[in-house]
């Protein structure tokens, strides 16, 4: 048999890919049911719109903050709170790994906005991939995904022509946590709703303690998280200014001082950088494996619990 006729052994491919992701730092990995994503995502945003021969969507979740990060000022957290670059790095590497080991075409799914639609529409919903892959469930905090063990994660996705057995969505939703249900019963609000600086979150919890309604004013949230969207407004105000003072105010006024710096250096602080809802979320901050200290403790306890 010639070498061109041999095919790579793909048995155990899923386990191999999961082991790869975990070795590189992923906390959770899952395979989403492609047909389900195709049904749910709108036209133009389905995996096959991006990669027509895709067979599987792999979702990778990485840890959010260190435990220390939750206690710092919002100014500081805005610069280092996001850890999505690790998810993207693992996804990028996994695409190469699949092609190298299993000879199946693969891509790192672009996590970016759709250039045709502007800043508020992604090319693909990484959230949908992760939810269908069973590594996150929608929360009352604007549908941010939460995991019962790892809390708040960032996600990356890989599309591949390798056929993999899909996983199922999570059977339970960790949001709302029992303490949030108690607060809701006494005040009508959860911590994420109460402490949001622009009051963009609302919702209802039913008698069983489950989410019955989630309402999210994303436009308000964007004012805290997508500062770059204001640049045309500032320039328009400067052009329309009647006098030099108004023009100076538009360009150099208080709230814009750091904006030009962020724009020029492409700082991460320009992007999704308000964490006030997650800072008060017990699932995000206090799940058993939510941060490196808790994960280290769990590892230590597991070792101590092993028979000698």
């Amino acid at each position: 048999m010639s070498s061109s006729q041999t095919r790579p052994d793909v048995s155990g491919a899923k386990e191999s890919l999961f082991a790869y992701a975990r070795k590189k730092g992923a906390l959770a990995v899952g395979v989403a049911d492609l047909s389900e994503i195709e049904r749910i995502a709108p036209a133009g945003h389905r995996p096959t719109d991006l990669m027509p021969k895709v067979k599987s969507v792999i979702s990778i979740g990485v840890g959010g903050q260190t435990q220390g990060a939750w206690g710092v000022t919002a100014k500081a957290l805005s610069f280092f709170g996001s850890t999505e670059s690790l998810a993207y790095k693992i996804a990028y590497g996994m695409a190469y790994y699949i092609e190298n080991k299993f000879e199946a075409r693969s891509i790192y799914c672009p996590p970016d906005l759709d250039p045709e639609l502007g800043a508020r529409y992604p090319l693909q919903s990484l959230k949908l991939h992760a939810e269908v892959a069973g590594i996150g469930a929608r929360s009352l905090a604007g549908d941010i995904l939460l995991h019962p063990d790892y809390g708040y994660m960032y996600f990356g996705s890989v599309f591949t022509e390798l056929e993999l057995e899909p996983d199922a969505p999570m059977t339970m939703n960790p949001c709302p946590a029992p303490s949030c249900v108690s607060m809701y019963e006494s005040t009508g609000r959860t911590p994420c709703m109460k402490f949001c600086p622009v009051q963009c979150l609302d919702g209802e919890i039913d008698e069983s303690g489950n989410q019955s309604a989630m309402d999210y004013d994303m436009a308000k949230c964007a004012e805290m998280t997508q500062q770059y969207e204001v640049v045309p407004q500032i320039i328009a105000a400067a052009i329309a200014a009647d006098n030099p003072q108004d023009r100076d105010d538009a360009l150099f006024g208080g709230s814009n001082k750091a904006l030009w710096y962020k724009m020029s250096v492409g700082s991460g602080g320009l992007l999704a950088q308000c964490f006030e809802c997650m800072r008060v979320c017990p699932v995000a901050t206090r799940s058993d494996l939510a941060d490196p200290i808790r994960r280290a403790k769990a590892r230590r306890e597991a070792v101590e619990g092993e028979p000698q």
Binding site: E131, A137, D143, N173, M214, Y216, D217
Partner: peptide, 10 residues
């Protein structure tokens, strides 16, 4: 503006 009732995707 996004509203969800229940948990239909999951």
């Amino acid at each position: 503006f996004q509203s969800r009732r229940g948990d239909p995707v999951r």
